[in-house]
Simulated assay, not measured.
Amino acid sequence: MEIVLYGYWRSGTSYRTRIALNLKGLSYRQTTLDLRAGAQNSPEYKALNPQGLLPALEVDGATLTQSPAILEWLEERFPEPPLLPKTMDERAIVRAMAATIGCDIHPLNNLRVLKALKGSLGASQEQVNSWIARWIGDGFAALEQAIARHGQGFAYGDAPTLVDCYLVPQVYSAERFGVDLSPYPKLMEAASLARSLPAFAAAHPDNQPDAD
C-alpha cells in the first residue's frame, strides 16, 4: 500500500495530517504544492481535488480530502495506536477540542483569507496581525480551560490524541505571527510535551523536503 500526501511544508492542515500519519507509524510519500505560487489551483491538482485545498491523501485507489475527514479515516483504518479515547463521551470532548481549532481558528487565518483581507479589503499588515491574534486568542482561551480540565500532560489525557494533532500546528502558526501565548500556560505545556515526541518533530515544517 502506497500513501501519497499532497501538501505544503507550512500548511497547518498538512502539518496536522503528517503528525497523525507519523503517530500511526505509516510511511508516506509527499507531493509538494507551493501555495505561494498557486500550485493548488493547477488543473492537474483540481482534477484530483476540485476544491483546490490542501491536503489530499491518495491511498488504495481513493483520494481523500479535508484534514478532519482524513484524520478520522486514519483512526478507523489504522486504530492502533488510538487517537480517540475509549468512551463515547470522551471521544465527543476530544472532537470538540479539535474542532475549536479546525473550525473556529484555522479557517479564519488560512492563506486565502489573509490574502482576501489584504487584497479585497485593503487591510494593513498590522490589521491582519490583529485579526490573526483575535481568533487564536478566542480559541486558545477556551482550550486553556478544557486542557486544565481534561489534560494529563497532553491536551487530553496522558497520551496524544486528535487534539494534539491540531494544537501543535496552531501553536506554530501563533508563534510565527507573534501572538502572545503567555495567557495559556496549560496549553503551552501540552504543546511542548507533544513537540518532544519524534512523530511531532518529524512533522515540523522545517523538517519537510520542500521547506525553504
Rank of each mutant, 00 (worst) to 15 (best):
residue 108 L to I: 13
residue 177 F to P: 00
residue 4 V to S: 04
residue 65 T to P: 12
residue 25 G to D: 05
residue 133 A to E: 00
residue 79 P to F: 12
residue 123 A to E: 12
residue 172 Y to R: 08
residue 80 E to N: 15
residue 41 N to Y: 13
residue 55 P to D: 05
residue 200 F to D: 02
residue 153 G to S: 09
residue 48 L to C: 06
residue 80 E to D: 14
residue 7 G to L: 07
residue 73 W to H: 08
residue 155 A to S: 14
residue 177 F to K: 01
residue 201 A to I: 08
residue 85 P to Y: 08
residue 160 P to I: 11
residue 201 A to C: 10
residue 62 A to Q: 06
residue 171 V to I: 14
residue 148 A to L: 12
residue 56 A to N: 01
residue 144 E to V: 09
residue 21 L to T: 04
residue 141 A to M: 07
residue 72 E to M: 14
residue 197 L to T: 05
residue 17 T to R: 00
residue 14 S to N: 03
residue 111 L to A: 12
residue 96 A to L: 12
residue 183 P to L: 08
residue 184 Y to G: 04
residue 76 E to L: 15
residue 132 I to H: 03
residue 149 R to H: 11
residue 61 G to V: 11
residue 192 S to T: 13
residue 190 A to Y: 02
residue 142 A to F: 10
residue 128 V to L: 07
residue 151 G to Q: 03
residue 125 Q to C: 11
residue 26 L to W: 01
residue 19 I to G: 09
residue 200 F to N: 01
residue 159 A to D: 06
residue 102 G to L: 14
residue 18 R to F: 14
residue 10 R to V: 15
residue 200 F to P: 02
residue 7 G to H: 00
residue 182 S to D: 09
residue 148 A to G: 09
residue 94 V to A: 06
residue 18 R to W: 05
residue 143 L to T: 02
residue 165 C to K: 00
residue 102 G to A: 14
residue 10 R to F: 15
residue 191 A to I: 09
residue 122 G to V: 07
residue 192 S to A: 15
residue 166 Y to A: 11
residue 102 G to C: 07
residue 11 S to P: 04
residue 83 L to T: 00
residue 64 L to W: 02
residue 11 S to D: 00
residue 22 N to Q: 03
residue 199 A to I: 07
residue 196 S to F: 07
residue 178 G to S: 11
residue 125 Q to H: 10
residue 148 A to M: 08
residue 59 V to Y: 13
residue 65 T to Q: 11
residue 115 K to L: 12
residue 51 Q to T: 08
residue 55 P to M: 08
residue 89 D to Q: 13
residue 70 I to K: 01
residue 22 N to I: 11
residue 9 W to G: 03
residue 16 R to I: 10
residue 155 A to R: 00
residue 22 N to E: 08
residue 2 E to D: 10
residue 179 V to E: 02
residue 13 T to H: 15
residue 117 L to I: 06
residue 181 L to K: 00
residue 205 P to G: 12
residue 64 L to C: 05
residue 60 D to R: 02
residue 103 C to V: 15
residue 110 N to D: 10
residue 198 P to K: 02
residue 50 P to F: 11
residue 48 L to F: 06
residue 153 G to N: 00
